[in-house]
Design a binder for these strands. Sequence first.
DNA 1: CCCTGATTCGC
DNA 2: GCGAATCAGG
Length: 245
Amino acid sequence: MGSDPKSVRSFSLSWTDERIDQLKAMWERGLTASQIADELGGVSRNAVIGKAHRLGLQSRPSPVKANETPKRAAPARKPAPTAPEAEAPRAAAPVAAPPPPPRPAAAAAPAAPAAAPAAPAAAASGDAPTPAPQPRIISVGPGGFLRQGPGDQQAPIPPAPPRRLVPAKPSPEIADKTSLLDLTERICKWPMGHPGEPDFHFCGEAVNPGFPYCVEHCGRAYQAQLPRGTRRPPPPMPFGGPRVR
DNA sequence: CCCTGATTCGC
DNA sequence: GCGAATCAGG
């Protein structure tokens, strides 16, 4: 079969459509930049945040944004070496401009009273009851599965993403295991099973400092090459190799 | 101390 | 356009 000249693997990760797609999906879902960055791999959370903003994705409850932008009392970074800094007209909104943020902010309403107790409508009409709060699995890409817990936020806003949504799969099995959302730099990312399986999850143990896996799985991942002729079980090396320090 | 996102600026 | 550095709040 023909090799695809396109899609040449560039060592430098760039924001491909697919990655941007995942970024958007996760960001809108309420995932933190760290988790998104960790999942995408090769990018830091800052990169994710920066890209998200460039994409026009507005961020939600941020700890620091509480203030409206009265003044930039934050001299972030060193001043320009040159220049007479003449206070450039930075987005000066002369008048008006009460831009009503059409951002429902998912996490803005954690206590969402919407999930009202007892639906009167259903009782009156005996119509279809409210959907059960079951964990749903949303696929955001090849190998990227996001689990939404019942207690999570976001109830009524499926912006009809043109993505492939896997119809929720009641998998209480993964609920007890480490999902992709639970992964951090300190969590063992050793995959258990294969992506797509209902019980696919991660090890979840505390990582061996400096490694993406726990001590036990580090031993599995970083095995010395066995002499040829020796049959060895397929080493499930999930992601790129270890980082040299 | 950990986390979070926002912002800015050099590349 | 991208992302590190920095800031700032919880």
